[in-house]
Simulated scan of single mutants.
Amino acid sequence: MTTTADYLVEGMTCGHCVMSVTEELTALEGVQHVEVDLRPGAASTVTVSSDAPIDPDAVRAAVGEAGYSLSDPRP
C-alpha cells in the first residue's frame, strides 16, 4: 500500500531547486515518487509517495540537505 504525504518547502525558485529536493527525498528508504508543485516566492508543495509513512524528521533533514526548509503547517 502506498502512503502519500504533502509538505510545504520554503525557498525553492527554479527547476534546479526541484531537482535537488527530489534527489534528496528519493534517497530516503521507502520513497517511491516525489512530485513538486513549484511556487517561486511562496511555499512549494512537495508530495512524497512511499511504501510506508516516512519520519517527518527524515523529510526535514533531506530537504535541509538540499538547502531548503520545511514550512510549519498553518492551521
Rank of each mutant, 00 (worst) to 15 (best):
T2A: 00
V59D: 01
L25T: 04
P53W: 02
A42W: 14
R39K: 13
H16C: 13
L25F: 02
L8F: 07
A58K: 12
Y68G: 13
C14M: 09
D6V: 01
R74H: 12
E35F: 00
G15F: 13
Y7M: 02
D37R: 07
C17S: 10
V34G: 02
V34E: 04
D57A: 04
T4N: 01
P40E: 10
T26H: 03
A27S: 10
G30Y: 05
T22W: 06
E29L: 10
T2F: 03
V34D: 04
V18F: 07
Q32T: 13
D6E: 07
D57Q: 09
L25Y: 02
Y7H: 09
S44H: 10
P53E: 02
L8G: 10
V31T: 03
G11V: 05
I54H: 04
G41T: 07
D57L: 05
A62S: 10
S20V: 01
R60K: 11
D51I: 11
G30D: 11
V9P: 11
A43K: 10
S44N: 14
T47H: 11
L8I: 00
P40Q: 13
H33Y: 00
S71M: 14
G67V: 01
V31S: 01
G11C: 06
S69T: 15
D72T: 14
A52V: 06
V46T: 06
P73M: 02
T47P: 04
I54Q: 08
M1R: 06
V18C: 13
T47Q: 13
R74K: 12
P75I: 15
T45E: 08
Y68I: 12
A42D: 15
T26Q: 13
T45A: 14
T13H: 11
A66K: 04
A61Y: 02
D72C: 05
H16E: 14
L38Q: 12
E35H: 09
M1F: 00
E29S: 09
T13V: 11
T26R: 14
D51F: 09
